[in-house]
Nucleic acid binder design. Structure first.
Length: 575
RNA sequence: UGGGGGAUCGUCUAGCGGUAGGACGCCAGCCUUUGGAGCUGGCUACCUAGGUUCGAUUCCUAGUCCCCCAGCCA
């Protein structure tokens, strides 16, 4: 399996690529020899936050496109044109996340801030050609002059300043002679345009702020609408792929790109951003969650950030498969969380070693099993992968089973353990429940007494005897105590269905995190390394959290197994 | 009421004038020492109304609904 790469000359066939409208455009352009037959894309984050799965869609699209075409390249460019929001921490984090996802930009790491001098030159060029002017309206006044969606704007009184005056003012802006907000550089396009983005957009604003890379070298900074198209042009990007909200910036993009003076002009193509049901995706809301301590941080496993998903136990392969599967279109879409879960289950089913872990332990004593002794049983590590081999697990007189696997008065659809009933202990024996010990005060079930049938041992003479259910267990004396964190949807409703955005926090699911302590896991899990992934048989996929310590293992549930019993249980069961 | 986009199973998506396909999900069954996985079968869709055409999801016209835009954010 080849990993998608951004370097020249590398092709990557990874699975089957479904067609989408952007793939079609790029392929057609290439076939037609447009852009000299090159394919150059870019992933252009602003380093002002952490990446989430929505970014993964864009990353997969851009790097994927480059990888699909011989000689294709995908750049990683930081669009760092706003010093007040950006931080090198994010630059690091974003690179780490893109790499973790499995992509490689090779030598093609760029920063818009590296182009500041060149951008400045283009701006002066625009001024000389009468295509840009220094405006001295206040922000408030500018808003008024801009008009509204239905009324045209009107020209600023400064719009007709001479080239010389503009040049002088602009140079003094650069020299730092003016305070923030005193002037801006605007493109001279059309204040009456029905597209408000064309009503003389701001190209430069004065901002006496230190930039994390250029420091105090610049007292003014280019806006996105100016820096982005030019950066694309400078880098020789052929296809500049962005999200739908930039659709009506495209005429401006083209206008700016035409000023770059580059032999080839990049083309902007827009697609719909990713939404996932019951997930918090907006930067603002994620920040709110983190700042209000509703979650443990940006890597909280309940968050759709790449760091959160990684800590949750997701694999890059599953995320890439998901991104490939959801496709690319221009419709506002909400993908169901179940689809993401499907892809992580599919991947982990193939990869993850099976182990036994009891989350809510109920003590079981096998009355007819000898005391002070134990035996080793052989267990299969992964039925999907014979090469994963086997391991041995200890069995003894006192065990733990899942409390949910016993019912004193079960409905007929329940075929696990109950008084007088038999079940198989996975890889061990068939046992029969012969007694229930309860707390005399509370009536709570404290312990089960069972008998075992030695002939039913796995591999033994009656091993093939059928019982209705097989349950997991651990030997009490050998088990390792662990903490297990279960995650449920962060939101109890779909944000897209909520009318007012203000009180979205009211929809936070108070049960989104369940911390289980006193769990009992099989001894092979002792010392499991952080981030390693397992299937806890019959329960789900779990990974070792970085919070784990040798004496205190902590597991995160990545996703539960599909559970036919849980489905039955939801419908009202007949007793 | 300006401009730019978008409407196909419950969800995501394919289709490019010729029987509307796939995936998730759901349902039923088989299998099973994970009520997992796997296997088999089934379920449900072209926003509306006109028109063009032998034939329209596709082309045309008129509507309807949804999203985005009035930062010196990106």
């Amino acid at each position: 399996m080849g990993l998608p790469r951004g370097g020249y000359g590398e092709t990557v066939p990874e699975g089957i690529s479904a067609s989408n409208f952007i793939r079609d455009i790029v392929a057609a352009d290439r076939a037609a020899g447009k852009h000299g037959g090159r394919v150059v894309t870019r992933f252009p984050p602003e380093p002002n936050g952490y990446l989430h799965i929505g970014h993964a869609k864009s990353i997969c699209l851009n790097f994927g496109l480059a990888a699909e075409h011989p000689g294709g390249v995908c750049h990683l460019r930081f669009d760092d044109t706003n010093p007040t929001t950006e931080d090198p921490e994010y630059v690091e984090s974003i690179q780490e996340d893109v790499r973790w996802l499995g992509f490689d930009w090779g030598d093609h790491l760029y920063f818009a801030s590296d182009y500041f001098e060149r951008l400045y030159t283009v701006a002066e060029h625009l001024i000389r050609r009468g295509l840009a002017y220094v405006d001295s309206l206040s922000a408030d006044e500018m808003r008024q002059y801009r008009g509204t969606l239905t009324e045209p704007g009107k020209n600023s009184p400064y719009r007709d300043r001479s080239v010389d005056e503009n040049l002088d003012l602009f140079r003094r802006m650069r020299a730092g002679e003016f305070v923030d907000g005193a002037h801006v550089l605007r493109a001279k396009i059309d204040m009456a345009s029905p597209n408000v983005n064309l009503r003389d957009p701001v190209l430069y604003r004065i901002r006496h702020a230190a930039h994390y890379r250029t420091g105090r070298a610049w007292p003014m900074y280019p806006s996105y609408d100016f820096a982005h198209p030019l950066s694309d042009a400078i880098e020789g990007v052929t296809h500049s792929i962005c999200t739908l909200e930039f659709e009506d910036h495209r005429p401006l993009y083209d206008w700016v790109v035409a000023q770059a003076g580059t032999p080839d002009r990049p083309q902007q193509i827009e697609f719909a951003r990713l939404n996932i049901s019951h997930a918090v995706m907006s930067k603002r809301k994620l920040l709110e969650l983190v700042e209000n301590k509703q979650v443990a941080g940006w890597d909280d496993p309940r968050l759709p950030t790449l760091k959160g998903l990684r800590r949750r136990g997701f694999t890059p392969e599953a995320i890439r498969a998901f991104c490939e599967h959801i496709g690319v279109s221009k419709r506002d879409a909400v993908v169901e969380m179940q689809l993401l879960e499907h892809f992580i289950r599919e991947d982990l089913n193939k990869q993850a070693a099976r182990v036994m872990a009891v989350l809510k332990p109920l003590r079981v004593v096998i009355d007819n099993y000898p005391e002070q002794t134990s035996e080793e049983l052989e267990a299969i590590n992964n039925p999907e992968d014979a090469s994963a081999g086997t391991r041995s697990i200890p069995f003894s007189r006192t065990l733990y089973v899942e409390r949910d696997d016993f019912m004193e008065d079960p409905p007929k659809e329940f075929f696990r353990l109950a008084p007088g009933r038999e079940v198989r202990l996975r890889y061990a024996y068939i046992i029969k429940c012969v007694g229930v010990t309860k707390d005399p005060g509370t009536g709570e079930i404290m312990e089960l007494h069972c008998t075992y049938d030695p002939a039913t041992k796995s591999g033994g003479p009656e091993a093939r005897r059928k019982v209705k259910a097989t349950i997991h267990w651990v030997s009490a004396a050998h088990a390792v105590e662990a903490e297990v964190r279960l995650y449920n949807p962060l939101l109890s409703a779909d944000l897209s269905s909520i009318s007012t955005d203000d009180d979205w926090m009211a929809y936070l699911n108070p049960q989104s995190l369940e911390r289980l302590t006193g769990c009992q896991v099989e001894p092979s899990l002792r010392g499991a390394v952080p981030r390693s992934r397992f299937q806890f048989e019959r329960l789900g996929y779990f990974c070792v959290d970085p919070d784990s310590r040798p004496d205190h293992p902590v597991f995160n549930r990545t996703v539960s197994l599909k559970d036919a019993w849980a489905r039955l249980d939801k419908r009202q069961l007949s007793r």
